[in-house]
Amino acid sequence: MMAFYRDERAARRLPALLPVKSQDVDEGYRLVGPGGRLTAVVVHVQWVDNHPAGPDTHVVVSLEDGSDIEFPFGVPLTAVWHAERRPLDPADVAAAAPASWGRPL
């Protein structure tokens, strides 16, 4: 597993299921994906400057498993810190599943 240069204690002070917009996804988190499944850990987030819709309109999220997902800005997502130790209620995780998902690259 990669090392994430983030204050682990600060991450634990946030809610276990953290609502974020697609452009605010951060490295070291897992996303709640379709069907309520958690993704691999986010290792890189890149705002797309040369997107046909214009600069700063889309973001590419790279996951530890090698997959990349492109999201338009403003998509509501839910993030979970990769080392979250608090129990996650499966019903809460299922309820946090996104209504829309990005495009795999």
Rank of each mutant, 00 (worst) to 15 (best):
M1K: 14
M1S: 12
F4C: 07
Y5A: 14
R6G: 08
D7H: 15
E8Y: 13
R9T: 13
R12C: 09
R13T: 10
L14D: 13
A16Y: 07
A16M: 03
L17H: 06
L17G: 03
L17E: 09
L17Y: 11
L18F: 04
L18M: 06
L18S: 04
V20E: 01
V20Y: 00
V20D: 02
K21N: 14
Q23W: 03
D24T: 04
D24R: 06
D24V: 09
D24G: 04
D24F: 02
V25S: 03
E27H: 03
E27M: 06
G28N: 03
Y29R: 05
R30A: 06
R30W: 04
R30D: 00
V32E: 00
V32R: 01
G33A: 00
G33S: 06
P34Q: 13
P34E: 13
R37Q: 13
R37G: 12
R37C: 09
L38I: 10
T39I: 02
A40F: 05
V41P: 03
V42R: 00
V42E: 02
V43S: 03
V43C: 05
H44D: 13
V45I: 07
W47V: 11
W47Y: 07
W47G: 12
V48A: 02
V48D: 02
D49V: 15
N50D: 14
N50K: 14
H51Y: 05
H51G: 09
P52I: 13
G54F: 01
G54C: 06
D56V: 07
D56A: 05
T57A: 15
V59M: 05
V60Q: 08
V60C: 09
V61C: 00
S62G: 04
L63V: 04
L63K: 05
E64A: 09
E64K: 12
D65E: 08
D65F: 08
G66Y: 06
S67T: 10
D68V: 11
D68F: 15
E70R: 11
P72K: 08
P72S: 09
F73N: 13
G74D: 09
V75W: 04
V75F: 00
V75E: 01
P76Y: 04
P76C: 08
L77S: 04
A79R: 10
W81N: 08
H82T: 10
H82M: 11
A83K: 14
A83W: 11
E84A: 05
E84P: 00
E84D: 06
E84T: 06
E84W: 00
R85M: 12
R86N: 10
P87Y: 11
D89I: 10
D89Y: 04
D89M: 10
P90A: 07
P90V: 13
A91H: 09
A91Q: 15
A91V: 11
D92F: 09
A94N: 12
A94H: 10
A94D: 15
A95G: 13
A97V: 01
P98T: 08
A99Q: 10
A99I: 14
A99K: 12
S100Q: 15
S100V: 15
W101P: 15
W101M: 08
W101N: 09
G102Q: 02
R103T: 14
R103E: 15
P104V: 10
P104S: 10
P104N: 11
